[in-house]
């Protein structure tokens, strides 16, 4: 019976399908057009994704024509699903204190690498000196900085050997 109900609504599925294809093309175009701010691309592309999702849910999944039970079933799960990321945001997404992830420290090393890559070969000597100075600074701090390096490097092959 429920089934016959749906067939009564004549949805032009082909039109929905064409709309979905246009949306997909749009998101690819948004990716190819380089906006000054990458955030604009992300927002546009996600807006397109929401539009596509609504098309699929309303017409392909018939939610537009279903009874009110759809709210009873989907509202609690949706609220719970949104709750989890929101609960994580203050802890991980927006750290109040200085982030403790090791990558926060590694980023400086990576940035200096990218900087030295960006410069021409003639300048490479210069960056080399900067890195050397940073190294000396380190060993001044801890007294036997060089030995520290040795230990951390030796650990890796030993693990591998097992």
């Amino acid at each position: 019976m429920a089934h016959d109900d749906h067939s009564a609504h004549h949805v032009n599925y082909l039109a929905v399908f064409v709309a979905l294809c246009v949306f997909t093309a749009l998101s690819v175009i948004f990716d190819l057009v380089s906006f000054s701010n990458h955030a604009i691309t992300i927002v546009l592309v996600l807006a397109v994704a929401v539009a596509k999702a609504l098309c699929v849910m309303m017409f392909f999944m018939h939610l537009k024509f279903e009874g009110n039970w759809k709210y009873v079933l989907l509202a609690p799960t949706t609220i719970l699903a949104i709750g989890l990321p929101l609960a994580l945001v203050p802890d991980i997404g927006v750290a109040y204190y200085t982030p403790l992830a090791p990558q926060a420290e590694w980023k400086a090393e990576m940035d200096s690498l990218h900087d030295s890559h960006g410069q021409s070969a003639g300048h490479s000597d210069h960056t080399g000196h900067v890195e050397e100075q940073a190294e000396v600074g380190h060993s001044d701090e801890s007294g036997d900085g060089a030995d520290h390096h040795e230990e951390s490097h030796e650990a890796a092959p030993a693990e591998k050997a097992e």
Binding site: T77, A81, L88, G93, A101, Q103, K107
Partner: peptide, 20 residues
């Protein structure tokens, strides 16, 4: 929905919290 939103949400949060 909850299963995939957990992954997608965790990804978005981790990404916002990971500069670089």
């Amino acid at each position: 929905i909850m299963f995939f939103t957990a992954f997608i949400g965790a990804y978005i949060v981790l990404r916002i919290g990971s500069p670089g």
